[in-house]
Design a protein around this nucleic acid. Sequence first.
DNA 1: TTTGTAATGTTATACTATTGCATTTGTTAT
DNA 2: ATAACAAATGCAATAGTATAACATTACAAA
Lengths: 159, 159
Amino acid sequence: MTSGSFPKPEHDHQRCVARLVRHAEQLCIKAGVRLTVQRLAILKIIGSSHKATGAYDVLEVMAKQGQRAAPVTVYRALDFLISVGLVHRISSLNAFIACHHSHGSNPVQLLICKACGGVGELELPAVTRALKEAAGKAGFSVDEPVVEVTGVCAHCCAA
Amino acid sequence: MTSGSFPKPEHDHQRCVARLVRHAEQLCIKAGVRLTVQRLAILKIIGSSHKATGAYDVLEVMAKQGQRAAPVTVYRALDFLISVGLVHRISSLNAFIACHHSHGSNPVQLLICKACGGVGELELPAVTRALKEAAGKAGFSVDEPVVEVTGVCAHCCAA
DNA sequence: TTTGTAATGTTATACTATTGCATTTGTTAT
DNA sequence: ATAACAAATGCAATAGTATAACATTACAAA
Ligand SMILES: [Zn+2]
Ligand SMILES: [Zn+2]
Ligand SMILES: [Zn+2]
Ligand SMILES: [Zn+2]
């Protein structure tokens, strides 16, 4: 992934999720961390759509699937998934989105469609650089930029 | 205000708050909206520091001042203050910061010091432009970018 | 004054997230 | 193998953030 994209409504989502799972497995092996059944289950739930998913939405789905769990369980799994880069937190929505990419340690910019709820990603080093530079001029040492852009996606613009 | 700044710890804060109040009064007159006592009181509380302030922090202060209020009261005032540009919401902290500037409709980038909790502002049209352009290439029409950068401010870097 | 709108009050509730401690599971070293 | 340790999970309670619904009051214009 070089620059970014917004999920197309017509894509083969079965395949999309399958790829996400493979990606997660490989990534966790390489990082030497444990992708437990529970963590994978929660990743699948979040990855089951390209829309922002709340922690309690995940809980609901788990309950429907018969694997009832406590909130803290979900939050712990989310912490893990975020730490390894398989999930992004969306601060402005108190929600989460599965990440299908490999950003390494590069910050990401999220595109959030107000109309359909879809979430896309950009990876713009220029933006990160500009922020670091401007902050640096004020003596501010940047740790982690949160960039979340609300708007309307191409598909919803048309309609 | 052209580009940005981070609040200096040593500044004359009395004067700083007084300026904020004048700014608020003028702005509300010009906009033809009502800056009620309550709204002003809440703005003053938020503006009483350059750190992020939570809604329930505001409530606590109000209680101490004898003007006990319900959460919804604070949230309504905050909605108002945000809508006229006197307060910025900090999504990543679920908190708020008073705005001493006049951005017009230009988006702002917030600098949040992890060490002291101080919050500064940047106004970087280049960042906004870069986001709009990159989003536009994906057919995404930008409404409102949320840019919040955590890190360590100059003062805390030294220490 | 009447009338309509904006602001506030009141109560309850919804939604989001963490703490603390007990237990289990998996890994590593003997 | 098994002891010892660390990571992950289970469980219950609670903390923290935000809104809904409806009644009332304050203000401004007609
Ligand atoms: Zn998909
Ligand atoms: Zn991503
Ligand atoms: Zn859309
Ligand atoms: Zn500002």
